[in-house]
Every structure is written in C-alpha cells, then in structure tokens.
Amino acid sequence: MKKGWISLLVMIFLFGVVGCSSETAKQNEKANKTKEIELLNVSYDPTRELYEEFNKRFAADWEEKTGQKVNIKQSHGGSGKQSRSVIDGLEADVVTLALAYDIDAIAQAGKLSENWQQELEDNSSPYTSTIVFLVRKGNPKEIKDWDDLVNSGVEVITPNPKTSGGARWNYLAAWGYALKQNNGDEQKAQEFVTKLFKNVPVLDSGARGSTTTFVERGIGDVLIAWENEAFLAINELGKDKFEIVVPSISILAEPPVTVVDKVTDKRGTSEVAKAYLDYLYTDEGQEIAAKNYYRPRSQKVAEKYADQFPSIELMSIDDQFGGWKEAQKTHFDDGGVFDQIYKP
C-alpha cells in the first residue's frame, strides 16, 4: 500500500515535469507502417565506424524495399556496461555486443529468449575478430609474443574485464596461451596472467578508452586490442607511429548480435530489427564488416580481403574454456580468478 502511494506520487511528479506520452504497442505498430521508424542498436566500443557505415547502407536498402524510412540510433560503450544498461531498461531493439555472455545476461533478465544464439547462423556472430598487440613504431621493447608482456619494465594497456568485452577476450587469450605453454597447468596459467596484470598501470572501462590511453595519452608500451581496433588506430592516427604485432596464438572472438524481443514487441519493430541483423550476413554487410577490419564469415568476401588479415592460430572459447558461461563464472564473476589476480 505504502509503495503504491510512493509510486503514485512519483508518477504525478513525472507527468508534471515532463509530460510523458504513453502509447500502446498497437498504436505504435500502426503508426510505424506509415511514418519513419526508429531503431536503437546498443553496441560495444570499437564498432562505431562499422555501424556508422552499415546503418547508412541498411537504411537505404530498407527504404528501397519497403518505402519506409528507418532512422538508426547508436549507443556505444564497454560491452558489459552496455549489457547492464539494457537490463536496467535502455530500450535497445538490437544488441551487437562483444561476447555471448553479455547477451546471456540480458536473456537471464527476461528481455529475450534463452536460446537466442541459435537464431542466426554462425552462433549469431556475423563477423569475428581476434586479439593482437599494438606497439609503438620500431617496437622498442621488442614485443613479439605473449611471453614478452610479463617482462619487467613493460607497461601493458588493456581495459577492465569487469566492464569490457574486449578485455575479457584479451585475458582469456593470455590465459589460453599460458595453458598451451605449460601443458594445461591452470596454476601456471594463473601465475602468468597475474604477472601480466602487474604490468598494467591503468584499466579503462572500455576498449576505446584503452586505445585513447595508449595512443593519445602515450601511456604504455603495448596495447592488447581487438584486431579491428588496432587497424583502425593505425589508419586514423598514423602508420608512422604504431605497428601491429601478431602473437603466435590468439583467440577466436565471436561478437554476437540479437534482437531484444521484449523491446521490439512493445515498440512494434520486430520486423525491421530482424531484417537489420540479416543484412549483416548479406554480401554487402559482410563487405562493410571486412572494410572495417572485422573478419567476415562469408567465404567469398573473406577471400577478397584475405591479404588484409594475418593468419594466426586461433583457439576457440568453447574448446579451451567450455563456453562463455563457464569462463565468466570461473574468471570474471565476483570472487572469481580475476578478483584474486587483480588487487589494486
């Protein structure tokens, strides 16, 4: 009863202050057929350039096919943080995040179906990427592989695995390398990763934050980064300042995409949201991904851009860590291995 009163008061207040409009889903659906439709894509940090280009192309394609204008809005940030926002009520029609666990978390909050990852091809990941190193020109600290990151006097920049998806891939890639070096000895792997994080002077909340820390603020000797992020940094900020180092082994990163059913049902955007994600799998979509340094799934497009991507031995999260749920639980949840490793 008391709670009801508080709610009522708050409601009256809100109506007074802003005057919200409340439309029903049915009205929305009807109105959408005729007027411009809005779509919100909540994504992770490094996809800004990719979706800026992709959104334009999709909007043009959709208008040609249906005569309807679609206005796509973007929100970017660390993958974990973005997932948290969607759980807290950010009305994303589609989420395109850095790793499956962050979408699992949204599913657990009841905003989309638990088996979302089976809904689209290739684990619902239309493009893949991997983790590489970005070093300063001439590679003054002679960084060639993961081993060199734990040397004393090497400053490593990586974002915070608690909030950033890329950072979790970074962490697991390092862990996987150490496992391989030590014949699967988990203890040794933990020692290796602990040593690595001792060399990290600052943890940003997202991959882009780390890139600007390394590139703009000039902190650190090596940035562990998404392959696409490393390429972009070089192209945007100067080939004469940085170079990419490809480690002997890295991880196959599958950034997945899905429709947030609960939001699209309410807003009447299910159809266009589905089409939006499907378009990522078309040749055009794949080509835009490749142009923005994401590894395309399509064989045809992959061959066309083969020169662009160095070949690396890639381990998969399912083989090495038993999938994201398992990896998240062991390493990144509260009290997990990362909490034991990183004590600031």
């Binding site: 409601m11 809100l14 919200c20 439309e23």
Partner: peptide, 10 residues
C-alpha cells in the same frame, strides 16, 4: 505503464 524515465530525457 509505458513510462520511460532513465535512458531518456526525464
């Protein structure tokens, strides 16, 4: 009640 507060202007 379809009222949006956070992640919006309110």
């Amino acid at each position: 009640n379809n009222i949006k507060v956070i992640f919006g202007i309110p």
